[in-house]
Design a protein around this nucleic acid. Structure first.
Lengths: 344, 344
DNA sequence: CTGAAAGCGCTTACAG
DNA sequence: CTGAAAGCGCTTACAG
């Protein structure tokens, strides 16, 4: 940085004190006299002294930094989780350094190296779609760097995690449609290589079975990334398939939004003819016409819970290897896309 | 971090070489023999050596880190800009540390201190709504830390910036409505304390004037944060005001989306009765019914441009005080909400 | 081609 | 209550 940057050493010279005393005074060390402490602080303020955290991090072997790995930062779910993480971190005096894997395993591996080299105190990660094993995270255990995963998890890797119960949420969503009297309920599914989407599909099936509705595989449409476009094309395929559903549960809101539009344009009433439930509770979902019933995935809460758990692990001296799993409650937010009174 | 972490010193001991040699070999210093270099690297790989960047940052007085300040990370525009920043930074070997001011001046000031203490090589910032003067950024000039602002800028602070021409974009958008033959064009405006929203309002007015359409202040509805809710309420007020517009230009997409819905529910055809143009080109805008004509604000490009400019400034030795302004081109994306052929 | 030594800015056990 | 000294892990001018 700068030549003009003021250091402890310069403060010491200016005040005819040792750098030890300056350092202690700045940290309110009890052994330094009140008067000295006050004077040092005053001078520091006067000269615009800002401690060099890089130096103190190195010396103390602690950075007050949390590394966060997300697939993409410009997906609302992740930026919302980050926002929750940051809120807690900020309050507790931690900084957050964010990295995007862009769902690339190579990049994810490289990021773990960077995080290690940066001496982060702990890591919160959502693994990428390509990540089938978590070997690149093993080292953090040896290094005693706490780790918390969120949302996507790898069953073969035992790690602390914050998740929602996707199975239960999907079950709830599907059951809600069943309670409306719907019998032909379709599902727009996410990529089955990802556990959470698999669990949503399982929850959907389980609800049908529990209510003695046969599972019809033709009513399950698979997508590769649950995009807007895929939602529309799934809906079109359903319409042209001959079996038009009377209920639909989508693995995210994006696909629900565009599927709903396709149905509307084709002349179907929502929820009268087809009731629709999404997943995620994106802000837009409450602004659609009709407003969309959906599962609130509590992204912000997830972020907060992950940060709290991580910081607790960081600050507990006894880094036991015990891992912890926090399951965040989800809510079914009922709106007009399944509200029958409206269409009555 | 860890006890087991391997350092240059340990490599040196293991290999009976000095730490100088190890350090040089790891950096492919030409003075070290090829054989030694190869052996050192092999051993480093074997032992899982990862350089401690905190130490080297301190020593070299350079962190390869860019500090980014955004109001909120969970606003799509900002996460999209960050994504652009990160893309460039990653390619050039820089890391990005992100901070949220949450539009609080206090927090913004505190963040500038943290960034200084972290020795970041440069800073990219979008100032918060409360930020009326930029005194807390002055120190970076003295410290020789390059600074690039994006989107929101403060006219009284001379700094490099990446912006779009909000005036021109708003002019284009409004003119587009005029070309459709619309005469009663309303505007949903953002908070006028922010330059960009002021410029959008000015652009709207200028287009009207240029085309000899009188500016009717009743057709301008002000909002405090351009939220979904405010868009709906503005639309309702317009409908009940007696002067129903035949064209509408909104300072963002959120308000356009909900305003459009209010109009539709009230029985107006879009674009037949009311043509609508938004601002930002959020992903949702192309999925609405009708799809929304809007200004693409090129968030990703802005991020990339800001990162390129910043890194160039960081790496240029001669840190001249010359500031630079990059104006990113915006496009009017014409979709169904203003496409007359469709409703013909 | 290799090494000894200084030093980045800070913290902290040790001594007084 | 205060200071001298060591050291965090690395880089790099200087010397050979």
């Amino acid at each position: 940085m700068s030549v003009s940057k003021i250091t402890i050493k310069e403060l010491a010279e200016k005040m005819n004190l040792s750098i030890s005393t300056i350092s202690r005074a700045l940290h309110d060390h009890p052994s330094i006299g009140k008067k000295t402490t006050a004077e040092v602080k005053k001078m520091a303020r006067l000269l615009g002294y800002v401690p060099n955290s890089v130096a103190s991090n190195l010396r103390r072997n602690k950075t007050y930094t949390i590394g966060v790995i997300v697939p993409r930062i410009d997906i609302y779910f992740h930026s919302h989780v980050i926002s929750g993480i940051e809120e807690i971190a900020y309050k507790q005096g931690y900084n957050v350094t964010i990295f995007q894997s862009r769902d690339s395993l190579d990049r994810e591996i490289k990021i773990t190296q960077i995080l290690q080299s940066k001496m982060v105190d702990g890591i919160i990660a959502c693994i990428g779609l390509e990540t089938k094993n978590c070997d690149h995270f093993h080292k953090f255990r040896e290094l005693n760097v706490p780790l918390v995963f969120y949302d996507r998890v790898n069953k073969s890797f035992d790690v602390s995690k914050v998740v929602i119960d996707d199975f239960e949420a999907a079950f709830k969503a599907t059951e809600h449609l069943i309670h409306l009297g719907r019998k032909t309920i379709c599902h727009i599914a996410g990529p089955q290589s990802t556990d959470i989407f698999k669990a949503r599909l399982e929850g959907y099936k389980a609800a049908l079975i529990q209510h003695h509705i046969p599972v019809n595989n033709k009513l399950v449409k698979y997508t590769s990334e649950l995009s807007y476009e895929e939602g529309a094309s799934c809906a079109k395929r359903l319409l042209s398939s001959g079996t038009v559903p009377d209920g639909m549960f989508c693995a995210n809101d994006y696909t629900a939004i565009t599927a709903m539009q396709v149905f509307k344009k084709a002349g179907y009433q929502i929820p009268g003819d087809i009731a629709v439930v999404g997943f995620s509770n994106y802000p837009i979902s409450r602004m659609l016409d009709p407003t969309l019933t959906t599962i609130d995935d509590s992204a912000f809460d997830m972020g907060q819970a992950a940060a709290k758990l991580l910081i607790r692990n960081v600050e507990e001296k006894n880094n036991t290897i015990a891992t912890e799993t926090i399951v965040i409650k989800t809510n079914l937010v009922i709106r007009d896309s399944t509200r029958m009174e409206k269409s009555a």
